[in-house]
C-alpha cells in the first residue's frame, strides 16, 4: 500500500511544470523515507534529481518500495484538473501497480476529484551522484538568476561563469557583440538583492544557456537558488522546497576540445 497526501498540492504541480520541458518520462521511487526521482534529458547533457521527504507530507505510507513509471505529459494533463489550493493524494494498493490514483480535494472538502493514471515500465538508468564539496557556491534570488540567463541568452547560446572571492561574473560573446553581468556579495535584507558567495576555489566554467533557462522554470518553487560549481564538474542548480525536499538540476559544462 502506498499513499502520499500533500497539503499544498500546488507544489506538485509546480514541480511537474518545472521539469516537463526537460524530461519526457520518469520513474518516481517511493520508499519509507519519501519520494525520489532522477532523470536525464534526451541528449544526456542535463540531469534532474527530486527528493521529497516523507515528513513533508500531511499523510505518508509506503509499506514496501515501489517504482512508478510516469509520462510527464500525461501527468501534466491530470494535474491540470487540480486547483492550486487543493490537497493532492497519490495512492495505489498494488505491489506492482499498473496505474496510480490521484485525489484532488478543495479546502472545504466539498469537491473531490479522482483520476487514475496508467503507469509505464521504464528502464531506469540512474547515475550515482556523489555528495560533492563544491569549491564555489552562489546563493541568490532565483528570479534574478532567471533574469540574467534570459537576458544573456539573447546575445549568445553559451555563458561563461567565473567566480572570485567577492563576485561572480556571467559573460557572453555572440555575433552581435559581447557582454557581462557581474554580481557582488550583497548581504542586503531584501531577498531579491541578497547574494551569498562561498568561494573556496574560484572557477571558470561554460554552460549552454538553453538548459539554464529550462532549469529556471523551477523559479516558482523557491525565491532563492544555489549554483554549485567545481572545476571540471557539472554545475548543480538547487531549488530547496520548504519543509519537503529539493529539486536539483545538473548540467555538464562545455569545454574547449
Amino acid at each position: 500500500m502506498f499513499e502520499a497526501k500533500l497539503q499544498q498540492g500546488v507544489i506538485f504541480k509546480k514541480i511537474v511544470d518545472a521539469i516537463k520541458d526537460l524530461v519526457k518520462s520518469v520513474n518516481i521511487d517511493a520508499s519509507t523515507s519519501g519520494l525520489s526521482m532522477q532523470a536525464m534529458d534526451s541528449a544526456h547533457v542535463a540531469l534532474v534529481s527530486l527528493k521529497l521527504n516523507e515528513n513533508g507530507f500531511k499523510d505518508y505510507r509506503c509499506d514496501r518500495p515501489i517504482t512508478l513509471g510516469l509520462s510527464i505529459e500525461n501527468l501534466s494533463k491530470i494535474l491540470k484538473c487540480a486547483g492550486n489550493d487543493d490537497t493532492i493524494t497519490l495512492q495505489t494498493d498494488e505491489e506492482e501497480p499498473s496505474s496510480l490514483k490521484f485525489f484532488f480535494e478543495n479546502q472545504q472538502a466539498s469537491k473531490i476529484s479522482e483520476f487514475s493514471l496508467n503507469l509505464m515500465s521504464l528502464d531506469s538508468e540512474s547515475l550515482g551522484i556523489p555528495d560533492t564539496d563544491y569549491s564555489s557556491v552562489i546563493q541568490m534570488s532565483s528570479a534574478e538568476f532567471s533574469r540574467i540567463c534570459k537576458e544573456l541568452s539573447s546575445i549568445s547560446e553559451t555563458v561563461e561563469i567565473e567566480t572570485s572571492k567577492e563576485s561572480v561574473k556571467f559573460s557572453v560573446q555572440g555575433d552581435i557583440g559581447a557582454g557581462s553581468i557581474t554580481v557582488k556579495n550583497n548581504q542586503s535584507d531584501k531577498d531579491v538583492d541578497r547574494v551569498d558567495l562561498q568561494i573556496d576555489q574560484p572557477v571558470k566554467l561554460t554552460f549552454a544557456l538553453r538548459y539554464l533557462n529550462m532549469f529556471n522554470k523551477a523559479v516558482s518553487l523557491s525565491s532563492t537558488v544555489s549554483l554549485n560549481m567545481s572545476e571540471e564538474n557539472p554545475l548543480m542548480v538547487e531549488y530547496k522546497i520548504d519543509d519537503l525536499g529539493s529539486l536539483r538540476f545538473y548540467l555538464a559544462p562545455k569545454i574547449s576540445d
Binding site: M40, H44, S126, L127, G128, Y250, A252, P253, K254
Partner: peptide, 14 residues
Amino acid sequence: DKAQKEIKSYYESE
C-alpha cells in the same frame, strides 16, 4: 567553439 560534454561522462551508471 566549445564542445558540450555529456552528464554521463561525469557520473557512473548505478
